[in-house]
Nucleic acid binder design. Structure first.
Lengths: 240, 240
DNA sequence: ACAAAAGTGTTTATTATACACCCATGT
DNA sequence: ACATGGGTGTATAATAAACACTTTTGT
């Protein structure tokens, strides 16, 4: 297991004529305040002291790209089996003040409440930030963030990735709220439900919400096998 | 200007603990035989002797990623101002027999007839291959090729990139043939023309085809400014 | 009984698809 | 005159969008 070290000296970077890193934009959907959040850490690089940055690290010559991303996520969130997707590689010669560091950007989706369980057990330094409040990050991370956000928005419309940010059981309203917040659009409740019903990728659970002072909503779960069946039949998934 | 050298010794690769390269999948549409082609060179890497490979090279520590792609294209095709898009970074530790080489894959679109003009003047080693005939390439280039081909297909449907593979003036039938060959689908001529007319991104030129023994087709040109106007109005381009 | 969010159908507008005949040119 | 591909319109089907009332629970 590699140790993560984010504060690399100029010497270390110069010795590798060119260094490669992985940076992860970690998205989570907070359904308590209905907000899309990203996980950031305070950078340890002197030149950007005090600024927030993405979760990243140099990759070792013996490590695959995806494995590096998984390692970083495991180290910073305690979580494995998160949704992960390579987005773009950023390699401007001027992007790192200490030398040439090319970085492969990933976005990752996690279920915030699973993460919450972990921070109680582990001593994790990362903090959630509302994506709307992030105005500036260390390095070119703000640009990377928005490239990844655009990719997430596309993924959400074209593939059932949203479920990776929801609890295993969720209400249709929670799902719609997620779509509305991430895509920044308003959806019609009846049309949204009809479309999901047509895809037949959700299973209705026998449980309902409890402790709400209104009609309790039914819980649903995403059925990956049914989704794959849909795709195998050449059908396309698209919301909205 | 960097020189391209594709046959790197194990020593050279080991000295950079990790090396970064750029590989370009160069697509061209041959409207004489209505076929999508890719440009390949014979690899100089001993382990893959005699096999075809993508156009690529190591990138220097002082060179931006896009600039490396532009340099490779200029060197191998004599062409500048080609359409270029980063696709994905391939970094499996085992992908290069001589060491760790992570490669950033690009796809590029060129007008074949402009290229033909260049090979008469320059001594270029690359050769066109029909994409349907390529079954195997050196390294993991076959996988890279198909990842880029999928990206091209998506781009063609969602953005007006096809024009980068056609002459400046073209007939509507040539444009439709390109879509049919690249996407591997059959389109209805009337519906295709109606949709293009609706987008209003083509200008009809005063010229027509000559030397054909049937009713000559009108020539059209793509109008980039009109396309940008369309997008600025929040409209979306999609074919089919 | 009231407040609060869940759940549910129908009508209309938009977009996509299917399809066949006349036109202009070269031989 | 005939062969060849170029050019054009209309009807139907499918999909998306707009819209409001009833239901269930807790207080």
């Amino acid at each position: 297991m590699h140790e993560i070290k984010t504060n690399h000296s100029s010497e270390e970077l110069k010795n590798q004529a060119l260094a490669l890193s992985v940076d992860c934009v970690v998205f989570g959907y907070d359904h308590d305040d209905n907000d899309l959040k990203i996980l950031l850490i305070k950078t340890e690089t002197e030149e950007f002291k005090g600024q927030w940055s993405l979760l990243g690290d140099l990759i070792s010559p013996s490590e695959n790209l995806n494995d590096a991303a998984i390692r970083i996520l495991k180290k910073r969130t305690g979580m494995e089996d998160v949704y992960l997707e390579q987005v773009e590689t950023f390699g401007n010669t001027s992007r790192h003040p200490r030398g040439r560091v090319v970085t492969v950007a990933y976005y990752s989706l996690i279920k915030i409440e699973d993460y919450i369980l972990n921070i109680e057990k582990l001593d994790l330094e990362a903090r959630w930030h509302s994506i709307t409040e992030v105005k500036h990050l260390a390095f070119d991370h703000y640009e990377i963030l928005h490239t990844c956000y655009n990719r997430l928005k596309r993924g959400l419309r074209e593939r059932p990735v949203g479920f990776s940010m929801l609890p295993k059981k969720f209400t249709l309203q929670q799902l719609q709220d997620l779509y509305e917040v991430v895509l920044h659009i308003k959806l019609d409740r009846r049309n949204f439900r009809r479309k999901l019903q047509a895809y037949d990728i959700l299973v209705k659970l026998p449980e309902s919400q409890t402790g709400v002072n209104h009609r309790p909503a039914k819980y649903y779960a995403f059925d990956q096998a049914k989704y794959e069946e849909l795709i195998k039949q050449g059908k396309t998934f698209r919301i909205p």
